[in-house]
Design a protein around this nucleic acid. Sequence first.
DNA 1: TTTAATTTAGAACAAATGTACTAATTATTT
DNA 2: AAATAATTAGTACATTTGTTCTAAATTAAA
Lengths: 204, 204
Amino acid sequence: MDTKERILKTALELYNSQGVNTITSRHIAAKMGISPGNLHYHFKHTDEIIKTLYDRLSADFDVIVASVEALEEVDLHMIRSFVTTSLELGYKYRFIFLHFVEIGLRIPAVKKDYATLTQRREKEFLSIFEKLKASGIFRADLPEEVLKAFVTQIFIVGDFWLSNNELTLKLKGSKAIAHYSDIFSSMFYPYLTPAAMQLTKGNR
Amino acid sequence: MDTKERILKTALELYNSQGVNTITSRHIAAKMGISPGNLHYHFKHTDEIIKTLYDRLSADFDVIVASVEALEEVDLHMIRSFVTTSLELGYKYRFIFLHFVEIGLRIPAVKKDYATLTQRREKEFLSIFEKLKASGIFRADLPEEVLKAFVTQIFIVGDFWLSNNELTLKLKGSKAIAHYSDIFSSMFYPYLTPAAMQLTKGNR
DNA sequence: TTTAATTTAGAACAAATGTACTAATTATTT
DNA sequence: AAATAATTAGTACATTTGTTCTAAATTAAA
């Protein structure tokens, strides 16, 4: 593995475990056993490391969403596995979510990118909801604005479940993912038709 | 106003507008026109300023929750005004929510306090939900775990709507509060009985 | 094998930060 | 009015940080 890749890997580890504000380029270099000079040969600015990691997260998530969007029909099992896969990805890059505002402040490109991304995602999610409505899984009696608000809720919980975990339960790894998967599933429950509610029995 | 109070006021202003990591004790002193030495006479450690502000937020919010809990009957209007009041308080101390994880990391006492507080709040919220069920406002067919998950959702959205706003819409002041009040109201919608849903017509 | 390019180490620099220290000033008490 | 306490300004210090610079070492190209 070349040095650049090792820097990214080490940075991810350290940021995840110690936070983005406590870890400096020197820490990363020290942990790798290379010189600060060498690190800054590969990344002129420390923020470029963070930006690169953010871009990877963003790209990986794109793939996940695209795979759901491509489906003709969406059912609850798909949703459940979409949730789990997303949470796993989030956990991998958890420092980004734990320090989202800080990072957005430090690296305006991240903030800008996220803001436009969100607008696209909102449409994508609403189109998935339409499919769920069409399949008789989602209730049809909910006003448009309620569904829109639900999308925002999903975004907020999706972006900050890790922060909530950090401040309260502090679950690690698969335990955290399992717990918040359940919460996500429960979030959908009141939006389901009685028939779809039946299907979830024993699944939740 | 004595110096100590002025420090707190200035710090709140600066933290809210520039973030907790960019503002230092020197910035606060400079903005006030006092010396760094003077500031550190009143607050030996900068973190004490943040801790004091957190304690005030926490105490203020306690009052809000207690006032709702004291009610014999809870209706949707109460909920709505509870939401608005809470969001207003959150906006006042927004830097705390925008940097919650960082602050928890820097000041372990904050993290510890918040963790235990959350446990208490969970019970308080569930008891409010029971009242809503008893009044025929909340659906009675929702499993206990779904309501518990709803509480967690409320906590996450309640703690991080400001971060979401910061990363996306960047609404200011009352516009932000109004927008996220609507989102909160919509969050409740699918949990309502058909009768209660009727009552919200035109209110949302 | 010589030459050129890439990569690396290590030192150095300037800026910033938290906080301690000292002395002066102001307020309070006796 | 004198003495004591509280507050304030200003300076100083040690540490940290991001980054730059130089030269050495390694790798690739000719």
